[in-house]
């Protein structure tokens, strides 16, 4: 439904701008200036500036792709080069060799991202909705409780103790999902959002019509608050996709390691090797299995590409989600 609505409205919007332009040209040929029209010089300057900025953003990734196709020998001898002497696909060949672990990690990452985002969105909105309603007697206390954790946190070791010893989550997939599911900051954002965007009178009318609390939440609050929910959903998706630290702490099993953590492990292993050359040389057969510079870059390419490619498509939904509610009262 919202999708259809959106396309209709965008068509309507573009038509109306066309009309306006046409009218402007006809009636006020010389005096009227399109407010969005820039002086050509200013336009060029801004375009160039923005172009440079865009290149600065894209260039590192482009460089990573080049390095991933450079032969290892060339990297060691000449360092990173924009136009390497020897090209090679050894790095990708190498990654293909560890495909079992790679696909496994991919699967783990996708699973925790999807399940984690769903869980986290529900937990956060439930909490935030409850503390946003004036009828809830202990809302001040629970607001303070959430707020308190933003100022003071237990620190690494107590968190570790809770997760591993009291909850017994070590080496389970839940250790990757639950610690990130609640976020005090998002709760406060959502609370404010509920307070502002959902007026009490709508809820009252729903209650008069005999809707239960669940029904009110899912059929009235949820659709009305989609922009806010889309925002925190986006944040937690990114949070789960990029998370490597929880896996470092709680996961020993290779088949539960998410993708970003796998990348970090390889990076950290290389760093360890650099600092402990004596061990590295004595145990050379061990470190033969650690990929070198180009393979590392190839991994970055493969880990980032799907997100980079699919993001523009998803972005459409996020933006439309953010604007749908924005216009409505």
């Amino acid at each position: 439904m919202p999708k259809k609505l959106q396309t209709q409205s965008s068509i309507a919007l573009s038509q109306s701008t066309n009309d306006m332009k046409g009218a402007g040209v006809k009636i006020l040929r010389k005096k009227y200036r399109d407010p969005q029209h820039l002086h050509p010089v200013v336009n060029t300057i801004i375009s160039v500036l923005l172009g440079i900025l865009a290149i600065m953003c894209i260039f590192p990734f482009f460089y990573v792709i080049i390095i991933s196709f450079t032969s290892e020998e060339s990297i060691v001898r000449n360092g990173f080069q924009l136009f390497p002497k020897d090209w090679s696909i050894d790095a990708y060949h190498y990654l293909w060799g560890m495909k079992a672990q790679f696909f496994r990690s991919y699967g783990v990452t996708i699973f925790i991202t999807i399940v984690g985002t769903i869980i986290s969105v529900f937990m956060i909105t439930f909490y935030a909705y409850a503390i946003s309603r004036p009828q809830f007697k202990y809302r001040r206390f629970f607001t303070f409780l959430a707020f308190f954790t933003m100022l003071f946190s237990g620190g690494l070791v107590p968190t570790y103790i809770v997760v591993t010893q009291f909850l017994g989550l070590k080496n389970t997939i839940w250790a990757l999902i639950l610690p990130l599911a609640m976020n005090a900051f998002y709760i406060i954002i959502m609370r404010t959002f509920f307070l502002k965007s959902v007026s009490e009178s709508i809820l009252e009318s729903a209650r008069i019509d005999g809707a239960s609390e669940w029904r009110i939440f899912f059929q009235i609050i949820f659709p009305l608050s989609l922009p806010g929910i889309a925002t925190i959903a986006l944040f937690s998706t990114l949070g789960y996709w990029n998370d490597w630290f929880t896996a470092l702490l709680y996961i020993d099993e290779p088949n539960l390691v998410p993708l970003q953590s796998l990348l970090m492990k390889i990076e950290a292993n290389l760093e360890f090797m650099r600092q402990n050359m004596d061990v590295a040389i004595m145990q050379s057969s061990l470190f033969d299995t650690i990929p070198q510079e180009s393979a590392k870059m190839a991994m970055v390419v493969i880990a980032t590409l799907p997100i980079a490619v699919s993001y523009p498509f998803f972005q459409k939904y996020f933006i439309s989600g953010l604007t749908i509610g924005g216009v409505k009262e």
Partner: peptide
């Protein structure tokens, strides 16, 4: 086994938490 690069941080947290 804990991977080379993870070792320092992870072992320290394990020891400090009294696991």
């Amino acid at each position: 086994q804990i991977d080379w690069g993870d070792w320092a941080q992870k072992s320290q947290v394990m020891i400090n938490s009294g696991e």
